[in-house]
């Protein structure tokens, strides 16, 4: 049982053992990203980037949409955790810090949602 007040917990000051969770997620997403980014970068540098039909065909092909969604979610998550640390390190005003952390979280969720939707749309179109 925690003896901390709800307010104390909400302000996020002192140990809520959040740090461990954050640390593990940053590493777990990093390990996933090693494999996923190598696959993605090696694929993308060899594709005809100006050719819309070829690009969407590649995105929809086989396991590519699944790997792409995993890559984009892992990248957005890892990036969210990373940018959070940078903001916490460099922004010292309490209100500015909370505001920036919120903006960063929103943008990262938006990135992940937009990316997943885009991949799904392309994959579905080629099926239907």
């Amino acid at each position: 049982m925690s003896l901390r007040t709800p307010l104390g917990r909400q302000l996020g000051l002192g140990s809520a053992h959040e740090g461990v969770h954050h640390w593990i997620l940053q590493r777990a997403t990093a390990v996933a990203l090693v494999l996923l980014t190598i696959w993605f970068v090696l694929s993308i540098v060899r594709l005809p980037l100006a050719d819309h039909a070829a690009i969407t065909a590649w995105i929809a092909h086989g396991v590519n949409p699944v790997l792409l969604i995993l890559l984009l979610v892992a990248a957005a998550w890892h990036s969210k955790l990373g940018v959070q640390v940078v903001i916490e390190d460099y922004v010292h005003g309490k209100h500015a810090k909370i505001a920036l952390l919120l903006v960063s979280s929103f943008i990262h969720v938006l990135i992940a949602a937009t990316a997943v939707l885009a991949v799904l749309r392309i994959a579905m179109r080629s099926v239907g």
């Binding site: 690009i55 969407t56 995105i59 990248a75 990036s79 940018v83 937009t114 990316a115």
Partner: peptide
């Protein structure tokens, strides 16, 4: 890391454009 976080925005914009049609 932060540079790639910015790059991720461009990557997603590119994907969204691909989903938006030719």
């Amino acid at each position: 890391g932060v540079g790639m976080s910015v790059g991720l925005l461009v990557l997603v914009a590119w994907l969204a454009a691909a989903a938006g049609g030719a």
